[in-house]
């Protein structure tokens, strides 16, 4: 358990000092929001209607960068040898990294949400639904994203392969998160909490699967 915090703290400290993830994902996701606004012609008032979906697309695309970076750190520093030397449980490493990526994603989502309110003129009707579904979705995205990032290796090919692999797996989460956010942003649709439950189910499934497969995966990291 202590190792979990150590790994998470280490990853967040590296990010705090280098600011590699934040400095790429935040501008990138803002660009996505802006480009959608240009493409959909803001005059016709469609933006508040589709805001939730566009927000989650931006988060999803940015998240592939965040998990890729999280794996890169370990590759550069020889994760496998380090684990052998210090005999840390691979599961602790996995959970720690999931926590660190989750924290980064939540930061990104908060910043991006401010942008959404300003740029897309949305109204908040159910803040609890927004917060809970945002947090659970980022756990789910981080857990499955990390597995795929470890799978696809490093280098140029990995950068190309990772979105292809991970975006279909994240599609159910995006659908559920978009639905619950639509309920939280606009009184029109109800049932936001059902979708939050579905995201929670996926998060649980992905985290437990990641805990199972991470140790064998790390052997050839």
């Amino acid at each position: 358990m202590r190792d979990v915090w150590r790994v998470a703290r280490k990853d967040l400290l590296i990010e705090w000092r280098s600011k590699r993830v934040i400095s790429t994902t935040v501008p990138f996701s803002f660009m996505v929001l802006l480009l959608f606004a240009f493409a959909l012609d803001p005059d016709r008032g469609q933006l508040p209607i589709v805001a939730a979906g566009l927000y989650w697309i931006a988060v999803l695309l940015a998240s592939t960068m965040a998990v890729g970076r999280s794996v890169d750190i370990e590759r550069q520093n020889g994760l496998r040898d380090g684990v052998r030397l210090f005999s840390i449980d691979p599961m602790a490493i996995y959970i720690g990294k999931v926590l660190a990526v989750t924290a980064q994603l939540i930061f990104l989502m908060v910043v991006l949400f401010a942008g959404l309110v300003v740029l897309y003129d949305v109204e908040i009707v159910g803040a609890p639904v927004l917060i809970v579904s945002g947090v659970t979705a980022s756990v789910a995205i981080a857990s499955v994203g990390l597995i795929y990032a470890f799978l696809s290796g490093t280098g140029r090919r990995a950068d190309m392969l990772l979105p292809v692999l991970v975006l279909p797996v994240l599609a159910p989460i995006m659908i559920a998160a978009t639905q619950s956010w639509e309920a939280g942003l606009d009184a029109g649709t109800g049932g936001g909490w059902d979708w939050v439950g579905l995201i929670g189910l996926f998060a649980l499934l992905y985290v437990s699967m990641g805990m199972l497969v991470f140790a064998p995966l790390m052997e050839d990291a």
Binding site: V144, Y148, L165, P168, V213, P216
Partner: peptide
Amino acid sequence: NQVARRSAVAALIAFVD
């Protein structure tokens, strides 16, 4: 072995669908 292990993990996750 490496390819087999990687692919097994990916197939496992994909099967969730």
